[in-house]
């Protein structure tokens, strides 16, 4: 699929979602893994736009690309916002997830959902760019 480059604003989430839906459809992923991938990409894109650009007072773009092989669908998001490794965040454990909502902190759920939704997630900072990489194994998911 052709890659997509969009302004790093929350309005771009809709286009990013459509791109992932098209990629998962082309890959023949079932509904549940396709949704998990879309959710994971949405969460990371939201973090990039909100924390990497808007809160830092930086304008820029976010690009997304998809690579389909016989065994995997790989989605890569690239940005030039503030370097940030999502995997550096502490994930909520069962003790937090079982808390009543009135006692819950509002943070930490996004990365948790990313890791639950994809078969592999990785992050690298290279050539001045954040690269967030999502991989779905096709065997068993279609």
């Amino acid at each position: 699929m052709m890659s997509l480059c969009l302004p790093a604003t929350l309005d771009s989430l809709d286009e990013i979602g459509k791109y992932v839906v098209a990629a998962t459809s082309e890959a023949g992923l079932d509904t549940k893994p396709a949704y998990g991938l879309r959710l994971a990409v949405d969460e990371i894109a939201t973090n990039i736009i909100t924390h990497g650009y808007e809160e830092a007072g930086i304008d820029g773009n976010i690009s997304i690309s998809a690579e389909l092989t016989a065994s995997t669908l790989k989605i890569v998001i690239e940005d030039t916002g503030i370097p940030f490794d999502p995997l550096s965040r502490k994930l909520p454990g069962e003790d937090i997830l079982n808390l009543p909502l009135e006692e819950r902190d509002i943070g930490g759920l996004g990365i948790f959902l990313v890791l639950k939704g994809v078969d592999d997630f990785s992050y690298v900072f290279t050539d001045g760019k954040n690269r967030n990489i999502f991989v779905m194994n096709l065997a068993g998911h279609n």
Partner: peptide
């Protein structure tokens, strides 16, 4: 049709 963590945070906000 789609619910991200931002929506979950509003549910926490609602309860609080």
């Amino acid at each position: 049709e789609f619910l991200a963590s931002a929506g979950l945070r509003v549910l926490i906000f609602a309860k609080q």
